[in-house]
């Protein structure tokens, strides 16, 4: 554990807490993309299958469980919890996440899994686990797209929603620093280039948002995206 990774994890947790608070306090899901959170839930469920097979640390296991439960409760609130679910604007949340996110990521994960030869010589179970892990890395990198597209529609960005996306984006940016740190200071560190590539892609997707977020913070005014 290094400081970048810890800050990254805390930023991730913080973003989830901000969103949970926003949903609970405002009892309102307008401007929030259900599709993004369903994608994140799928990311966590496919990545953390190692909860049952590999123990890293108490911290690691607790965080994984916390991510799954908190994301599941976000999905539950937006879908089913009255009165929040009535404020969810389904008509605006239109990104075709199966066709343009889940499908392509599944294809890409299968291709990279077999081309890299990763998992050859392992059991079928381990192969499936590796495949799911690779899939989750790809999917996480673009899971925020439905949310960013929804924001473009609304343009006026609520403070809490803005903060949520800012911390969600900072988390992967901090992970990049963590990978650089580990490369230098951890002997025998094993590189996962798919994770690096997707981590950079994920951070770049937020770049535009970061820019307008910073500008609005500096001006101290309302946050709105340009047309």
């Amino acid at each position: 554990m290094n400081v970048f990774r810890l800050c990254g994890d805390m930023s991730h947790v913080f973003s989830i807490v901000v969103l949970l608070l926003r949903l609970r306090v405002a009892k309102n899901a307008s401007g929030i993309s259900l599709r993004t959170h369903e994608l994140f839930l799928l990311v966590f469920l496919t990545r953390y299958t190692d909860l049952f097979t590999t123990y890293y640390s108490l911290y690691n296991s607790c965080m994984k469980i916390a991510y799954i439960l908190s994301t599941a409760s976000i999905v539950y609130m937006i879908r089913l919890s009255d009165p929040i679910c009535t404020t969810y604007d389904k008509a605006q949340d239109t990104f075709r996440h199966w066709a343009f996110a889940v499908g392509p990521c599944a294809v890409l994960a299968t291709l990279t899994h077999f081309i890299s030869g990763e998992g050859s010589g392992y059991s079928l179970f381990v192969n499936i686990q590796e495949l799911l892990w690779t899939f989750s890395i790809y999917l996480e990198s673009i899971a925020i797209l439905p949310q960013l597209i929804l924001l473009q529609r609304y343009r006026e960005v609520e403070n809490l929603t803005g903060n949520y996306i800012f911390f969600m984006g900072s988390y992967r940016a901090l992970y990049i620093l963590n990978w650089i740190y580990r490369t230098y200071y951890e002997p025998g560190y094993r590189h996962h280039y798919v994770a690096y590539f997707c981590g950079v892609l994920q951070t770049l997707l937020y770049a535009d948002f970061f820019y307008y977020y910073m500008q609005s913070k500096r001006r101290g005014g309302r946050f709105s995206l340009p047309t």
Partner: peptide, 10 residues
């Protein structure tokens, strides 16, 4: 012991 790299991350 060999590091598991970014697989031990979240």
């Amino acid at each position: 012991k060999e590091s598991s790299g970014s697989k031990d991350e979240l």
